[in-house]
Computed example of a mutant assay.
Amino acid sequence: MALQDPIPVTYTVVFPHGCYIADEVEPVKDFDASSNGRFVQARDKQTAELVWQVAVVDGDPTLKPAQKTVAVKILAPVQPVPPRPMPGLPFTPVEFNGITITPYVNAASPGRPAYSIKIREMYAPRQTAQPAQHKASAGRDAA
């Protein structure tokens, strides 16, 4: 069985350690339609929506440096606005919703699979609960 359509996945499957915006959101060029200095923005083949792109840094500490940055394509009628930068952080944390991946064979690395990541929504990470205090420190505080 060959998969023909993009595969829906969750954010935590693709970025279990989180990810961070590394560049500006930019329109993706339709290389077939653009010519003679005239820029034509790409449209998604399934939805016909405009395609935008942003580079993100994967927070996985086990990745090699060359594997850390990945381009994420965003399907949206207008240019998406990334979350506001967080004071004191060099990169802006981000989460995505409506994620699909499309596997393909990378011509630059024959035999190695690659994935195109498309998303529908980009937003600031949700607040998470604070970690519970360590029992040893809780015992010290009670004494």
Score class of each variant (00 low, 15 high):
130 Q>N: 13
141 D>E: 05
127 Q>M: 12
78 V>A: 11
10 T>D: 05
99 I>R: 03
97 N>R: 07
46 Q>M: 02
41 Q>R: 10
9 V>K: 12
30 D>M: 09
42 A>D: 06
18 G>E: 02
13 V>L: 06
45 K>F: 15
25 V>Y: 05
74 I>R: 12
91 F>A: 05
27 P>C: 06
66 A>H: 13
143 A>W: 05
17 H>V: 02
39 F>L: 11
65 P>S: 14
131 P>R: 09
22 A>D: 10
99 I>N: 00
40 V>S: 01
122 M>S: 04
143 A>F: 11
1 M>Q: 14
25 V>N: 08
142 A>Q: 04
132 A>F: 08
119 I>F: 01
20 Y>R: 03
79 Q>D: 10
10 T>C: 05
21 I>H: 00
31 F>G: 00
61 P>A: 07
100 T>K: 10
103 P>G: 08
23 D>A: 09
92 T>P: 00
101 I>R: 05
56 V>Y: 05
105 V>D: 09
74 I>Y: 15
135 K>I: 06
102 T>S: 10
139 G>C: 04
91 F>L: 13
126 R>D: 07
81 V>N: 07
139 G>R: 11
31 F>Q: 04
14 V>I: 15
76 A>I: 10
90 P>S: 03
19 C>H: 04
26 E>S: 04
125 P>G: 13
67 Q>H: 08
87 P>I: 12
6 P>E: 12
43 R>A: 09
31 F>I: 00
9 V>F: 07
19 C>K: 06
79 Q>A: 14
139 G>V: 04
51 V>D: 13
5 D>L: 08
134 H>I: 03
101 I>E: 11
82 P>I: 15
57 V>C: 11
115 Y>S: 11
109 S>H: 09
27 P>S: 04
